[in-house]
Design a binder for these strands. Sequence first.
DNA 1: GTAGATGCAAAGTCTTTGCATGTGT
DNA 2: ACACATGCAAAGACTTTGCATCTAC
Lengths: 132, 132
Amino acid sequence: MTRDRRIILHVLGEASIPLTAEDILERVNASQPGMALSTVYRTLDELISRSSVQRTLLSNDGHAFFELMGSVHRHYMVCLGCHRMFPFSSCPVGDFADSAAEELNFEVTDHSLVLYGYCRHCRLGRQSQGSE
Amino acid sequence: MTRDRRIILHVLGEASIPLTAEDILERVNASQPGMALSTVYRTLDELISRSSVQRTLLSNDGHAFFELMGSVHRHYMVCLGCHRMFPFSSCPVGDFADSAAEELNFEVTDHSLVLYGYCRHCRLGRQSQGSE
DNA sequence: GTAGATGCAAAGTCTTTGCATGTGT
DNA sequence: ACACATGCAAAGACTTTGCATCTAC
Protein backbone atom coordinates (compact mmCIF):
# COMPACT_ATOMS: atom_id res chain seq x y z
CA MET A 1 0.00 0.00 0.00
CA THR A 2 2.51 2.64 1.04
CA ARG A 3 5.49 3.76 -0.95
CA ASP A 4 8.04 2.76 1.69
CA ARG A 5 6.56 -0.67 2.03
CA ARG A 6 6.88 -1.17 -1.70
CA ILE A 7 10.48 0.06 -1.70
CA ILE A 8 11.51 -2.28 1.09
CA LEU A 9 9.85 -5.26 -0.55
CA HIS A 10 11.69 -4.37 -3.72
CA VAL A 11 15.03 -4.18 -1.95
CA LEU A 12 14.43 -7.56 -0.33
CA GLY A 13 13.38 -8.97 -3.67
CA GLU A 14 16.59 -7.82 -5.32
CA ALA A 15 18.76 -9.32 -2.61
CA SER A 16 19.51 -12.99 -2.92
CA ILE A 17 20.37 -13.33 0.74
CA PRO A 18 18.93 -12.07 4.01
CA LEU A 19 19.66 -8.46 4.92
CA THR A 20 19.95 -6.62 8.20
CA ALA A 21 17.87 -3.54 8.88
CA GLU A 22 20.92 -1.40 8.23
CA ASP A 23 21.58 -3.15 4.94
CA ILE A 24 18.05 -2.39 3.89
CA LEU A 25 18.28 1.25 4.91
CA GLU A 26 21.51 1.62 2.99
CA ARG A 27 20.01 0.21 -0.16
CA VAL A 28 16.83 2.20 0.16
CA ASN A 29 18.74 5.40 0.65
CA ALA A 30 20.82 4.72 -2.41
CA SER A 31 17.78 5.46 -4.52
CA GLN A 32 15.45 7.29 -2.15
CA PRO A 33 17.51 9.17 0.44
CA GLY A 34 15.83 10.18 3.65
CA MET A 35 14.26 7.10 5.14
CA ALA A 36 14.80 6.64 8.86
CA LEU A 37 15.95 3.39 10.42
CA SER A 38 12.86 3.34 12.59
CA THR A 39 10.74 3.31 9.46
CA VAL A 40 12.63 0.29 8.23
CA TYR A 41 11.93 -1.57 11.45
CA ARG A 42 8.31 -0.48 11.53
CA THR A 43 7.74 -1.50 7.96
CA LEU A 44 9.45 -4.84 8.51
CA ASP A 45 7.19 -5.52 11.49
CA GLU A 46 4.22 -4.79 9.33
CA LEU A 47 5.47 -7.03 6.54
CA ILE A 48 6.27 -9.80 8.99
CA SER A 49 2.79 -9.65 10.45
CA ARG A 50 1.44 -10.06 6.92
CA SER A 51 3.76 -13.01 6.37
CA SER A 52 5.47 -11.28 3.49
CA VAL A 53 8.81 -11.20 5.26
CA GLN A 54 10.52 -13.35 7.83
CA ARG A 55 13.29 -12.84 10.34
CA THR A 56 15.94 -15.46 9.94
CA LEU A 57 18.19 -16.85 12.55
CA LEU A 58 21.75 -16.68 11.32
CA SER A 59 24.07 -15.61 14.07
CA ASN A 60 24.16 -14.72 17.70
CA ASP A 61 26.01 -11.50 17.18
CA GLY A 62 23.06 -9.28 17.81
CA HIS A 63 21.92 -8.63 14.25
CA ALA A 64 18.58 -9.74 12.93
CA PHE A 65 18.31 -10.71 9.27
CA PHE A 66 15.26 -10.31 7.09
CA GLU A 67 14.25 -11.94 3.84
CA LEU A 68 11.16 -12.36 1.73
CA MET A 69 8.98 -15.15 3.01
CA GLY A 70 10.31 -17.98 1.00
CA SER A 71 8.39 -19.41 -1.86
CA VAL A 72 11.24 -21.91 -1.79
CA HIS A 73 12.57 -23.59 1.31
CA ARG A 74 16.18 -22.51 1.74
CA HIS A 75 19.02 -22.61 4.18
CA TYR A 76 22.37 -20.88 4.27
CA MET A 77 26.03 -21.54 4.71
CA VAL A 78 27.64 -18.68 6.58
CA CYS A 79 31.33 -18.00 6.10
CA LEU A 80 33.14 -17.34 9.35
CA GLY A 81 35.84 -15.50 7.45
CA CYS A 82 33.99 -12.93 5.33
CA HIS A 83 30.52 -13.39 6.83
CA ARG A 84 28.96 -13.85 3.45
CA MET A 85 25.95 -16.12 3.17
CA PHE A 86 25.48 -18.79 0.56
CA PRO A 87 21.99 -20.16 0.03
CA PHE A 88 21.27 -23.77 -0.76
CA SER A 89 17.94 -25.40 -1.24
CA SER A 90 18.46 -29.03 -0.37
CA CYS A 91 17.35 -29.88 3.13
CA PRO A 92 17.78 -33.01 5.21
CA VAL A 93 15.45 -31.95 7.98
CA GLY A 94 11.91 -32.57 6.78
CA ASP A 95 11.25 -36.24 7.45
CA PHE A 96 13.86 -36.35 10.14
CA ALA A 97 12.08 -33.66 12.11
CA ASP A 98 8.81 -35.54 12.08
CA SER A 99 10.28 -38.75 13.36
CA ALA A 100 12.47 -37.07 15.96
CA ALA A 101 9.50 -35.05 17.16
CA GLU A 102 7.24 -38.03 17.41
CA GLU A 103 9.22 -39.52 20.25
CA LEU A 104 8.62 -36.41 22.32
CA ASN A 105 5.06 -35.83 21.20
CA PHE A 106 6.27 -32.56 19.83
CA GLU A 107 4.63 -30.87 16.85
CA VAL A 108 7.23 -29.31 14.59
CA THR A 109 6.05 -26.27 12.67
CA ASP A 110 9.35 -24.90 11.47
CA HIS A 111 13.07 -25.36 11.66
CA SER A 112 16.30 -23.51 11.25
CA LEU A 113 19.49 -24.95 9.82
CA VAL A 114 22.71 -23.04 9.30
CA LEU A 115 26.06 -24.41 8.21
CA TYR A 116 29.12 -22.51 9.39
CA GLY A 117 32.57 -22.72 7.93
CA TYR A 118 34.76 -21.12 5.31
CA CYS A 119 33.93 -20.23 1.75
CA ARG A 120 36.14 -21.08 -1.18
CA HIS A 121 37.86 -17.73 -1.05
CA CYS A 122 38.51 -17.66 2.69
CA ARG A 123 39.78 -21.24 2.66
CA LEU A 124 42.59 -20.18 0.38
CA GLY A 125 43.52 -17.33 2.65
CA ARG A 126 43.61 -19.62 5.64
CA GLN A 127 45.72 -22.23 3.93
CA SER A 128 48.36 -19.86 2.65
CA GLN A 129 48.55 -17.46 5.57
CA GLY A 130 47.72 -19.60 8.56
CA SER A 131 45.69 -16.74 9.98
CA GLU A 132 43.45 -13.90 8.87
CA MET B 1 41.11 -21.70 38.57
CA THR B 2 38.85 -19.12 40.21
CA ARG B 3 35.95 -19.86 42.48
CA ASP B 4 33.37 -18.10 40.27
CA ARG B 5 34.53 -19.96 37.21
CA ARG B 6 34.05 -23.22 39.02
CA ILE B 7 30.60 -22.24 40.23
CA ILE B 8 29.42 -21.28 36.77
CA LEU B 9 30.75 -24.46 35.24
CA HIS B 10 28.93 -26.36 37.93
CA VAL B 11 25.66 -24.57 37.22
CA LEU B 12 26.00 -25.29 33.52
CA GLY B 13 26.81 -28.88 34.31
CA GLU B 14 23.67 -29.32 36.38
CA ALA B 15 21.45 -27.84 33.70
CA SER B 16 20.35 -30.17 30.95
CA ILE B 17 19.57 -27.35 28.57
CA PRO B 18 21.22 -24.08 27.58
CA LEU B 19 20.85 -21.18 30.00
CA THR B 20 20.82 -17.44 29.57
CA ALA B 21 23.20 -15.24 31.52
CA GLU B 22 20.33 -14.28 33.81
CA ASP B 23 19.44 -17.91 34.38
CA ILE B 24 22.99 -18.58 35.41
CA LEU B 25 23.13 -15.60 37.75
CA GLU B 26 19.90 -16.69 39.37
CA ARG B 27 21.17 -20.18 40.01
CA VAL B 28 24.54 -18.99 41.23
CA ASN B 29 22.96 -16.56 43.63
CA ALA B 30 20.72 -19.27 45.01
CA SER B 31 23.76 -20.77 46.68
CA GLN B 32 26.34 -17.97 46.60
CA PRO B 33 24.55 -14.61 46.72
CA GLY B 34 26.39 -11.55 45.55
CA MET B 35 27.71 -12.30 42.09
CA ALA B 36 27.20 -9.52 39.55
CA LEU B 37 25.79 -10.09 36.10
CA SER B 38 28.92 -8.60 34.58
CA THR B 39 30.95 -11.30 36.26
CA VAL B 40 28.75 -13.92 34.68
CA TYR B 41 29.35 -12.46 31.24
CA ARG B 42 33.06 -12.03 31.84
CA THR B 43 33.43 -15.55 33.10
CA LEU B 44 31.44 -16.94 30.20
CA ASP B 45 33.70 -15.10 27.76
CA GLU B 46 36.67 -16.64 29.46
CA LEU B 47 35.15 -20.11 29.35
CA ILE B 48 34.16 -19.70 25.73
CA SER B 49 37.68 -18.71 24.78
CA ARG B 50 38.89 -21.88 26.47
CA SER B 51 36.31 -23.88 24.55
CA SER B 52 34.68 -25.06 27.76
CA VAL B 53 31.42 -23.35 26.97
CA GLN B 54 29.59 -22.39 23.82
CA ARG B 55 26.95 -19.86 22.92
CA THR B 56 24.08 -21.55 21.19
CA LEU B 57 21.81 -20.10 18.62
CA LEU B 58 18.24 -20.66 19.68
CA SER B 59 16.16 -17.63 19.01
CA ASN B 60 16.29 -14.17 17.63
CA ASP B 61 14.66 -12.58 20.61
CA GLY B 62 17.79 -10.98 21.96
CA HIS B 63 18.85 -13.58 24.51
CA ALA B 64 22.03 -15.55 24.19
CA PHE B 65 22.11 -19.09 25.55
CA PHE B 66 25.12 -20.86 26.98
CA GLU B 67 25.89 -24.52 27.52
CA LEU B 68 28.87 -26.68 28.26
CA MET B 69 30.84 -27.47 25.16
CA GLY B 70 29.21 -30.67 24.12
CA SER B 71 30.88 -33.94 24.62
CA VAL B 72 27.81 -35.16 22.77
CA HIS B 73 26.45 -33.59 19.63
CA ARG B 74 22.97 -32.30 20.41
CA HIS B 75 20.22 -30.17 19.00
CA TYR B 76 17.03 -28.79 20.49
CA MET B 77 13.35 -28.51 19.87
CA VAL B 78 12.08 -25.19 21.14
CA CYS B 79 8.44 -24.86 22.13
CA LEU B 80 6.83 -21.70 20.81
CA GLY B 81 4.23 -21.93 23.55
CA CYS B 82 6.19 -22.27 26.78
CA HIS B 83 9.68 -21.62 25.37
CA ARG B 84 11.06 -24.74 26.94
CA MET B 85 13.85 -26.57 25.16
CA PHE B 86 13.97 -30.29 24.54
CA PRO B 87 17.30 -31.81 23.59
CA PHE B 88 17.67 -34.62 21.12
CA SER B 89 20.84 -36.24 19.94
CA SER B 90 20.04 -37.65 16.54
CA CYS B 91 21.21 -35.45 13.71
CA PRO B 92 20.62 -35.60 9.99
CA VAL B 93 23.12 -32.93 9.10
CA GLY B 94 26.57 -34.55 9.15
CA ASP B 95 26.91 -36.25 5.78
CA PHE B 96 24.43 -33.93 4.21
CA ALA B 97 26.53 -30.92 5.13
CA ASP B 98 29.61 -32.33 3.51
CA SER B 99 27.94 -33.06 0.22
CA ALA B 100 26.03 -29.79 0.13
CA ALA B 101 29.20 -27.90 0.92
CA GLU B 102 31.23 -29.67 -1.71
CA GLU B 103 29.25 -28.08 -4.52
CA LEU B 104 30.21 -24.65 -3.28
CA ASN B 105 33.75 -25.51 -2.29
CA PHE B 106 32.75 -24.56 1.20
CA GLU B 107 34.39 -26.10 4.25
CA VAL B 108 31.83 -26.78 6.95
CA THR B 109 33.17 -26.64 10.48
CA ASP B 110 29.95 -26.52 12.44
CA HIS B 111 26.21 -26.30 12.12
CA SER B 112 23.14 -25.26 13.98
CA LEU B 113 19.79 -26.99 13.82
CA VAL B 114 16.73 -26.00 15.81
CA LEU B 115 13.23 -27.39 15.49
CA TYR B 116 10.39 -25.07 16.46
CA GLY B 117 6.89 -26.09 17.32
CA TYR B 118 4.74 -27.05 20.25
CA CYS B 119 5.47 -29.45 23.04
CA ARG B 120 3.11 -32.12 24.20
CA HIS B 121 1.67 -29.90 26.87
CA CYS B 122 1.19 -26.80 24.75
CA ARG B 123 -0.38 -28.81 21.94
CA LEU B 124 -3.18 -29.79 24.27
CA GLY B 125 -3.77 -26.18 25.24
CA ARG B 126 -3.93 -25.14 21.62
CA GLN B 127 -6.32 -27.88 20.63
CA SER B 128 -8.81 -27.25 23.38
CA GLN B 129 -8.65 -23.48 23.53
CA GLY B 130 -7.89 -22.46 19.99
CA SER B 131 -5.38 -19.94 21.33
CA GLU B 132 -2.90 -19.54 24.15
C1' DG C 1 53.22 -6.17 46.07
C1' DT C 2 51.50 -7.55 41.72
C1' DA C 3 48.38 -9.72 38.62
C1' DG C 4 44.09 -11.01 38.03
C1' DA C 5 39.06 -11.05 39.51
C1' DT C 6 34.90 -8.51 40.96
C1' DG C 7 30.95 -5.12 41.85
C1' DC C 8 28.94 -1.20 40.37
C1' DA C 9 27.69 1.95 37.16
C1' DA C 10 28.26 3.84 32.74
C1' DA C 11 28.64 3.08 27.84
C1' DG C 12 27.40 0.43 23.56
C1' DT C 13 24.53 -1.89 20.12
C1' DC C 14 20.44 -3.15 18.12
C1' DT C 15 15.56 -2.45 18.32
C1' DT C 16 11.22 -0.26 19.80
C1' DT C 17 8.31 3.58 21.12
C1' DG C 18 6.49 8.49 21.77
C1' DC C 19 5.39 12.50 19.75
C1' DA C 20 4.74 15.99 16.63
C1' DT C 21 4.86 16.67 11.66
C1' DG C 22 3.52 15.18 6.94
C1' DT C 23 0.91 12.92 3.37
C1' DG C 24 -2.97 11.31 0.86
C1' DT C 25 -7.78 10.78 0.31
C1' DA D 1 -10.26 16.99 8.27
C1' DC D 2 -8.79 12.16 9.40
C1' DA D 3 -6.32 8.16 9.46
C1' DC D 4 -2.10 6.54 8.77
C1' DA D 5 2.94 6.97 7.82
C1' DT D 6 7.35 9.14 9.03
C1' DG D 7 11.60 11.46 11.16
C1' DC D 8 13.78 12.34 15.17
C1' DA D 9 15.02 11.49 19.58
C1' DA D 10 14.38 9.06 23.69
C1' DA D 11 13.66 4.72 25.90
C1' DG D 12 14.52 -0.39 26.36
C1' DA D 13 16.89 -4.83 26.51
C1' DC D 14 20.95 -7.30 26.51
C1' DT D 15 25.88 -7.13 26.69
C1' DT D 16 30.43 -4.96 27.33
C1' DT D 17 33.71 -1.85 29.47
C1' DG D 18 35.99 1.38 32.91
C1' DC D 19 37.46 1.94 37.27
C1' DA D 20 38.40 1.39 41.90
C1' DT D 21 38.47 -2.33 45.25
C1' DC D 22 39.53 -6.78 46.69
C1' DT D 23 41.91 -11.55 46.60
C1' DA D 24 45.37 -14.68 46.18
C1' DC D 25 49.83 -15.95 45.64
